[in-house]
Write a protein that binds this DNA or RNA. Structure first.
Lengths: 195, 195, 195, 195
DNA sequence: AATGAATGAGGCTTCATTCAT
DNA sequence: GATGAATGAAGCCTCATTCAT
């Protein structure tokens, strides 16, 4: 019953009643409990499922040997592809405050992708391609920009055709890239991210 | 009792019970109803109040005659100042899916600030300082990056001192700025955003 | 599936779910409904089955021609034998408040054994062997004592070997028996029990 | 809302719905939860309350210096007085299988009264007044007889006036007493009650 | 005959809201 | 104005029962 996803996206976890989910799935309310022991278990399973899907798509598409610019582009396009294929799933896992009902296992999953992105950034920084700032900062900026764009798209404020996507990708690369004639080329050490 | 804010930030609108708010405010549950006719009225008032505060801070701080780069910097720093002064308020108005309980008046408010930012971007584009892309896209990218950074900060994944803030601001300017030797200087028409 | 008995003993009728019974019986939930039209029908059948078993054992073992003392002893030992052979069955039919779900037929069965015991007591009273009190009172005292003893045994508070059983039987006979030198031999009329 | 007692007595714990209790108490269902956090907490509180009442009545009435026969009589009459004053309470605490929902604290309370009765019996045995059997056995026999009598009374099968009560008391004393000319006077050691 | 997924009424509990004090 | 007990609708979940396989 992953069409429970739609409800959670629309009204949030606490704003969604199990009967609503059941109605949307065209089953009886009790039926859901044959597959999920509780509402919380249901969100967590949903969350883990889609988080895994993104991660596997990204890991699979990631061009190991390519340059940082290409790696960035591929990751970006892959995530966009996912967000277009399953817009609800993307909105659900990225734009909700899950803190109050996700279990530890789900939270742990969340860290993996960001860990990966951070390490990629670190490598690019050592090559002088990316600004020598805290990789966490860079990653959050880019990911935040991405989410903002997708949210605007979902809410109908922005049309996302291939050209716009390509433009956005270049703009986000600019966010983290070292530009000729700017002070970042000197290899300043990045600050540590967390106390 | 704007300490209801804290509850909404932590657990969301539907996840927060009126008695919880009352307890946090150290008043009786009934007392809230002397000031707000309903829970929905309370969120809406909260939302409008803080949305107005940001807007007034930004409008007040905005340097009319200055260049686009300076205007961008000031807006950015002003919003950061707000987000630091009232972190809950910022998180509340920017990172929650309010769609299901905000009334029309609140929704309308939301558009004003973005309208303003978009027009500023348009002006900067005509001066050749900002990439000639759909202003909506640029704005959502920057604002999304901003929110992503703040969220990472709130969740303890990122330390935000003045230097980091300044670095982030420069990176976000790079997101939208035209860079020498790049193809954007040629005045390519931006795609229109959605109606 | 008379292993439903175990569930009813442990958690009571309302506290037992049909799936629990099915699981214990290692069949599917639906299977039970091939043999019993409803949960109520199942309890009633269980109840009647075991009530009949006790009665038949007692009637069969009862020594018609023997003296009252011997008759008492045999009945007592027979019921103890039953309670030891089928402890769950005994606990089920004697220590549960069945009022809310037993049908009339089941309730009627309950009276038969007590009727029989009462008539036996009446005879013994006429011989001056048993206290000339309301036979209902005497019977309830003895039966209550019996149940109390069995419950203590089931709950692990009392070890019941043959010697203890024999001792208890003698003690219960003392409960109803006329003792030399006591005032009961004078033939005081017993109070009538209730209509 | 100790009129929840009536419901539990009539239909048992699992057979009683909170709304039924509420209706009987003439309050709304939600109101109960201002006073008890859950249905289980409610039963436990009920159980503890009434168990304490019996114990305090018995301890208060107990004639310390008197002989065993008098002590027995007083205890018996006191419990009868309680059972007559609050028949539902007596039925509730003595004739229900509480095992599945009582908490440890409640279970512990249960042991106190029986502990007391057992020690009293032990003393009387050392004086040669009571049969030298396992005190647990004797106590369970007498208490079981008592409960059986009360249950018959509650179910309308037995009228309990003062005379009947006095007769029953004497009969139960016979259950445990040593009778002249019987083999118990020799001071045979009692068997231990539990492995 | 046996299965077990599906059903939906009903149970326990929460919570927005009211109102007597 | 403030309180907090009371309300009852609504939410999560269970479970007796059905039915297609």
């Amino acid at each position: 019953m992953t069409a429970a996803l739609a409800c959670f996206v629309e009204r949030g976890f606490h704003g969604t009643a199990m009967p609503q989910i059941a109605e949307r799935a065209e089953v009886a309310a009790g039926t859901i409990y044959h597959y999920f022991p509780s509402k919380e278990a249901l969100v967590n399973e949903l969350y883990r499922k889609w988080k895994s899907v993104v991660m596997q798509r990204v890991f699979k598409a990631f061009p190991q040997g390519a340059g940082a610019r290409e790696q960035f582009r591929v990751m970006w396009l892959e995530i966009i592809a996912f967000a277009r294929d399953d817009p609800d799933a993307f909105m659900f896992i990225e734009t909700h405050n899950h803190a109050s009902y996700l279990d530890q296992e789900s939270v742990a999953l969340d860290r993996n992708l960001k860990e990966f992105a951070r390490s990629m950034l670190g490598l690019a920084q050592s090559q002088g391609l990316v600004k020598p700032l805290d990789p966490t900062l860079l990653m959050e900026l880019v990911f935040g920009a991405f989410v903002g764009m997708m949210r605007a798209h979902t809410e109908g404020r922005l049309v996302l055709d291939d050209e716009v996507v390509a433009q956005a990708e270049r703009a986000c690369w600019d966010t983290i890239a070292v530009h000729p004639g700017r002070g970042f080329g000197s290899g300043t050490a990045s600050a540590p991210s967390v106390a």
